[in-house]
């Protein structure tokens, strides 16, 4: 692969990661982008950003992931990041029931602030801590089915199912584009299509954003 090859891709998908404080959102992102577990992860301030290029049906896709702070005091400002998300990863901690109980509130925000075709993926994190389990698998599975969410239990620590959650979401988004449900290049869709032929580079990723002010 040429040096530019690894940076070329045909789509950008925007994701957000949401859920209560301490459920492991940043750790999931870190495990996905760096393949490493980050112990003693501090609380995220506002939002953090991560990126990785993946492949779906032979097409290279750049995932642009916004990891939001779970602390209540950021709730008002992090809401602005829901807009234009193609995928939303909604996370709870299987060892803390309260984080599961709050899912309906996170789901309401997601449904209200994203577009109807945003793919919502429910992740029950910390599945490695089976001994302290506080939320049954089948219970969460039922909640997911009732609300039309894709669901998996995962572990940011061992890495189990982390890759799967991010990739399955991308596959579903890709399918929505192919089915014509999602119009790539509409800002609200959270999807950007790069024309074939010209090499798309990471540097182009901000082309849709306004340029930095030059003063």
């Amino acid at each position: 692969m040429s040096s530019s090859g690894q940076y070329s891709y045909s789509y950008i998908f925007k994701y957000i990661i949401i859920g209560d404080m301490g459920v492991g959102k940043s750790c999931l992102l870190h495990q996905f982008t760096e393949q490493k577990f980050m112990p003693d992860c501090p609380h995220t301030i506002g939002v953090e950003f991560g990126t990785r290029i993946i492949e779906v049906h032979g097409e290279k896709i750049k995932l642009q992931i916004w990891d939001t702070a779970g602390q209540e005091r950021f709730r008002a400002v992090t809401r602005s990041y829901y807009r234009g998300a193609a995928g939303a990863l909604m996370v709870y901690d299987i060892t803390r029931r309260s984080t599961y109980n709050h899912l309906s509130s996170w789901l309401t925000d997601t449904k209200n602030l994203t577009n109807p075709n945003t793919v919502i993926f429910l992740i029950g994190n910390k599945m490695d801590l089976e001994g302290s389990r506080d939320v049954r698998y089948d219970e969460a599975k039922k909640f997911a089915e009732e609300n039309d969410l894709i669901f998996v239990e995962a572990s940011a620590m061992t890495g189990e199912n982390v890759e799967q959650a991010f990739l399955e979401t991308a596959k579903k988004i890709y399918q929505n584009i192919k089915d014509g449900k999602l119009n790539a290049n509409m800002t609200e869709s959270g999807v950007q299509h790069k024309e074939r032929g010209g090499p798309a580079s990471l540097g182009d990723s901000s082309s849709s954003d306004k340029p930095n002010c030059s003063c």
């Binding site: 950003f49 991560g50 990126t51 602005s80 990471l202 540097g203 901000s206 954003d209 306004k210 930095n212």
Partner: peptide
């Protein structure tokens, strides 16, 4: 590279 944290606009 991944400096979207400085490019995204309100």
């Amino acid at each position: 590279m991944a400096d979207d944290i400085l490019n995204e606009v309100v």
